[in-house]
Design a protein around this nucleic acid. Structure first.
Lengths: 112, 112
DNA sequence: GCTATCTATTGATGACCGTCAATGGAACGG
DNA sequence: CCGTTCCATTGACGGTCATCAATAGATAGC
């Protein structure tokens, strides 16, 4: 009925522990989902290296995707709070958000 | 026909630059997608803090999800190379992979 | 006003994901 | 053997996502 290779008992082996607060997990998941796409990760890489805000038209030229798809991706990044947009005339310029928290910045430094 | 707020010309404003190698982007995206789920991120947090491999039955007890769903999530983590499994008798014990590369470890240190 | 350019939005479509119930497979105890 | 426990797999279902074509909004120059 039971087998104890170490000192395990019934169904639950060791007391379950959930160390991370749910609100923090949700925040991290939102960032991770925003970054978990090749195009968006490349975009963040470009923005992280750019010394000035980058025009959307640069992305449409660089990424072999339709213009609505490009707009969709930068919108996702903006919803996640990763980028900021400033509009000047016809153009829309994007840059990395300047108030990224420490953990998000660490993720970006590690990956892009 | 054209408007030049700075020194932009026609459609393409500045020469496009794709700094990150595609192979590295794909590898990063695989890690990000594996982590971009609340349950899996919590699992990784538990494993990161655990001093010994954790039994699947602990996860089924901790996460209010069906056992197939738990198995599905740890399978995703294993496919991404984030965790390793060692089976002992009836039980399956999971731990963090011991050969995680530097960038992946930095992401885990930042988030979980 | 009219036209051209850049960007965002809408609608549609095909693919993928998270979840569960049901089943299968393996190992242990009697 | 046989029943039990643990884990993985399959099949199905609803939801989300990435993508594009088409359209709309906004701005600048004529």
């Amino acid at each position: 009925m039971k087998a104890t290779p170490a000192e395990r008992t019934k169904g639950v082996c060791s007391p379950p522990s959930i160390p991370l607060p749910a609100v923090r997990v949700d925040a991290s998941v939102e960032i991770l989902k925003a970054l978990a796409d090749p195009t968006r990760l490349q975009m963040v890489g470009v923005l992280k290296r750019a010394s000035e805000p980058v025009c959307i038209c640069d992305f449409t030229a660089a990424f072999a995707l339709s213009q609505p798809t490009i707009s969709h991706h930068v919108g996702k990044l903006r919803e996640a709070g990763l980028v900021e947009v400033t509009k000047s005339g016809i153009w829309a310029y994007y840059r990395l958000a300047r108030n990224l928290d420490v953990r998000t910045r660490a993720v970006l430094d590690a990956l892009v």
